[in-house]
Amino acid sequence: MTDTVLLQVRVSASLLRRVDELCAEGLFKNRSDAVNDALRYLVLRYSRTSPEGKLTSLYLGGRLARSGSPSDMVFKPKREVEVEF
């Protein structure tokens, strides 16, 4: 593999045991191979996510900066609107 970097991350011991089991089953050559596959999936998943999907993910993760209020966003409809009772 060319142009690789060493990535040090902390993972739970139980998760790592499961990854090792997958390697032992032959699904991945080693831990690096498994982590590379997981990261490729992660990048692919978010490259397909819409802006609203990404915003929702940030919101649910508590990582979206909060400011202002949408109350002032009042629009002029193109035609008459009826709101159901």
């Binding site: 802006p51 915003l55 979206l64 202002g68 629009f75």
Partner: peptide, 22 residues
């Protein structure tokens, strides 16, 4: 009633709002 751009902006504004919890 208005358009896609405005709808997208409103969705983002609610998620970012200090006065609202979604």
């Amino acid at each position: 009633a208005v358009g896609e751009r405005e709808a997208r902006e409103l969705y983002a504004a609610y998620l970012r709002s200090e006065e609202h919890v979604v």
